[in-house]
Write a protein that binds this DNA or RNA. Structure first.
Length: 107
DNA sequence: ACCGTATCAACTA
DNA sequence: TAGTTGATACGGT
């Protein structure tokens, strides 16, 4: 059941608040945190899901600043074109592709 | 296929 | 307060 993170949605919200994150930042991070394994979401879809439809650019800005990189599966967020986009984590976009392929989210 | 423009939020000076 | 940046999207040429 537990993947080893040991964090709950409530904990994430508490941490984000403690980091002085704005509502937009928290919405994006929490939504991405709830993306199920094997599923991928586009930046635009995430933006619309949190109520900021056209803020797909801002979504990328948030993930780039992503203070919870090891706990939030930011690698599940891709471009609307089906491309992976970019990734500021260790290994860069190559790592992102590897993770998504491993989960079966992509071919 | 390539380039330019549109749009939104956060960061820095 | 204003200017710049950025892990994008879409349309026109």
């Amino acid at each position: 059941m537990e993947r080893g993170k040991g964090y709950n949605k409530n904990e994430i919200e508490r941490i984000l608040t403690d980091l002085n994150m704005t509502g937009f930042q928290k919405k994006v991070l929490m939504y991405v945190y709830e993306i199920p394994k094997g599923e991928t979401r586009t930046y635009k879809q995430v933006a619309e899901a949190i109520g900021h439809g056209g803020a797909y650019r801002a979504v990328g800005t948030v993930l780039k600043n992503n203070p919870l990189a090891p706990i939030i599966p930011c690698h599940r967020v891709i471009k609307s074109n089906g491309e992976l986009g970019n990734y500021s984590g260790d290994g860069g976009t190559a790592r992102k592709e590897s993770l998504l392929r491993k989960e079966g989210a992509i071919k």
